[in-house]
Amino acid sequence: MAEITKLVHKYLRHDKKFPHVWCPGCGNGIVLGAMIRAIDRLGYSKDEIVMVSGIGCSGRLPVYVDFNTLHTTHGRALTFATGVKLAKPELKVIVVMGDGDATAIGGNHFIHAARRNINITAIIINNNIYGMTGGQYSPTTPYGMKATTAPYRHIEHAFNIAELAVTAGAVFVGRGTVYHARLLDRLIEKALLKRGFGVVEIITHCHTQYGRRNRMGDAVAMMNWQKEHAVRIERAADMSEEELKDKFTIGVLVDRDLPIYTEQYNLVRKQAQEQASRQ
């Protein structure tokens, strides 16, 4: 067994009935591996990690790992995570969501969690489709593509999740792909270390529901697509608009510092207690 596989096994739940629910070739396993490597490198204990998810293929991710795990309702993962974090700020709370989960049904929670700057890491796995329910279009399905609920063509425009997070106030926003695995490791590590609301958008493929319907080939072909269309943000600055057409940027989009909710609330508590003692 390769070292890297051994490491992942250290964090898997061996009493869970494997195999997992994901299709062969799915990128979710790469995301899970990257998360585990980042957690391991940063030296968090299993007890201090709370991994929260919503509904969909991404929602099944926490069940396989030996942390405190919470599989919530569709789109609501960040709300549950907010409660966990506020009640026990010493816990490291990581939320895993899909594109539909985080930006359709959970879109409101997403922008407000970012605005509040609560100390949570949000990992958003973006495969441009609702995979588990059978390939319906999501808020990130590109214009003109096909889905089971857009059998002719999709006529809506896609959200740019990372840009949305930046605008909503997230203090750390990164974007990676499952093809650029080493970059992904580093982005997740940075997001975990960041104090405040950190977001990592991960571009992945759903060859089963999205690629097949849009003639994009198998998992390997779709990962090659990621390789060809991703541009490091450092390089993108020197590229023309024409060159960046049909491309997307990867790397750290934003890294800034703003007051953190839990620390601010501690100050509120102090103020309230001082006022009460004076009365």
Binding site: V50, T79, T82, G83, L86, A272, Q273
Partner: peptide, 29 residues
């Protein structure tokens, strides 16, 4: 609540409110 070391938060809607309440309870509050 802040006077007694507890936590109050106004969420973005009632769905979020109960979500946060459940999360806090799972963390022992």
């Amino acid at each position: 609540l802040p006077q007694v070391g507890g936590t109050f938060i106004q969420m973005e809607d009632e769905i979020a409110s109960l979500g946060a309440v459940i999360g806090a309870s799972l963390a022992g509050a």
